[in-house]
């Protein structure tokens, strides 16, 4: 209470608090990695690698953040990403055109969003079931398109794929004395643009605030004159659209389509959102937090690998442990807050 009087600004709200914790832990963890594991973690390229590898994960995590803020869930994002990759690869290989392939990706994403949104908002079916069906459908369609891995064989696309943005001043000198500039893939730019767009949307655009209102208390949102059905509909449309974009970014990174692409991505995306401070109950969360959530998740995996624990099962166990830690932390922090308010 004393603090509040001294500060001109308001105390952190739930979203800001959870986000700050995540950013703090990420920084501490990264610094610890530099100190104890040194080497690779010192180079800026390490961060860029993480971004390059996870651009599409960042995008779908943002999609989930939007849906989760609105009090829903979308577990189809990974499968839709995979379907988009496969469709676009096959289309490009059949001699398609780049622009059309992008439109195809966006179209598939929007299509899923539309159907999900309609079923959830206007027919009031549980989002888990609808997006589960969406996930089944997308996975099934992917294998129907092709069971075998497909590599893109398309000149224009190859150019797009190999296009890298070089940032010389963040580079480093390799052991053999050559200077290697930091490299960032085009997909990362797309991801960052999406991130900024959604940040602005959630913070400064009416629709974004309506997502928060809807997730905070749906009944209230309705009474406040928000068209809850349309708002929810739009949240799933956005999620679908972002899954489509994510698919294209994924393809730009791998340059190939495979039925098992992006397997388990939805759970990684949910985990990123949660670590970033989004509550599944809705109304609390922020894409900046989600961004750091993704980075935290990736960093922990990198640290595990760098520590010499190469068995793949170590990664998932540490991820699980990490998740457990954050979930408990949030529960304790928010619980303490609620208590404080009541007293």
């Amino acid at each position: 209470m004393k603090m509040m009087k001294n500060m001109r600004k308001e105390p952190l709200n739930d979203t800001q608090l959870l986000m700050s914790i995540t950013i703090g832990i990420f920084i501490v963890m990264y610094l610890a990695a530099i100190v104890f594991l040194g080497g690779g973690f010192l180079h800026a390229q390490q961060i860029f690698d993480m971004l390059n590898d996870n651009a599409s994960l960042i995008i779908v995590s943002c999609a989930l953040t939007i849906v989760m803020i609105g009090g829903g869930i979308d577990i189809s994002v990974g499968a839709v990403t995979s379907l988009v990759v496969m469709s676009c690869v096959l289309y490009l290989n059949s001699g398609g055109n780049i622009i059309v392939s992008i439109l195809l990706a966006i179209g598939i994403g929007l299509g899923f969003g539309l159907v999900h949104g309609f079923l959830i908002s206007y027919l009031e079916i549980q989002p888990f079931i609808v997006t589960l069906a969406g996930m089944f459908f997308a996975r099934g369609m992917t294998t129907i398109l092709s069971v075998n891995p497909q590599k893109v064989d398309h000149e224009a696309f190859a150019k797009l794929r190999d296009m890298k943005i070089e940032i010389p001043f963040l580079g480093y000198t390799a052991k053999n004395g050559n200077f290697v500039p930091a490299r960032m893939e085009l997909g990362v730019v797309v991801a960052l643009v999406c991130l900024i767009f959604i940040f602005v949307l959630l913070k400064y655009i009416r629709l974004g605030r309506n997502f928060y209102a809807m997730g905070g208390n749906q009944q209230s949102a309705l009474m406040l004159g928000i068209n809850v059905k349309r708002t929810r509909f739009l949240s799933y449309i956005l999620s679908g659209l972002l899954s489509g974009i994510s698919g294209y970014v994924f393809m730009m990174h791998t340059g190939a389509g495979n039925a098992t692409n992006a397997a388990g991505m939805e759970m990684n995306a949910i985990a990123s959102s949660i670590i970033g401070g989004t509550l599944l109950t809705g109304g609390v969360g922020n894409v900046i937090g989600t961004f750091f959530g993704t980075l935290t998740l990736t960093t922990i995996k990198k640290i595990v690998v760098s520590s010499g624990l190469n068995d793949p099962w170590w990664q998932s166990i540490t991820t699980g442990g990490m998740l457990c830690f954050f979930i408990m932390l949030q529960s304790v922090v928010l619980g303490k807050r609620a208590k404080k308010k009541n007293s």
Binding site: V130, L132, A133, F136, F137, G140, M141, T143, I144
Partner: peptide, 15 residues
Amino acid sequence: TDVKAYKAIVIILLV
């Protein structure tokens, strides 16, 4: 492997 897609359609019809 393709069963999933058809299953999804039936699930949606049911719900």
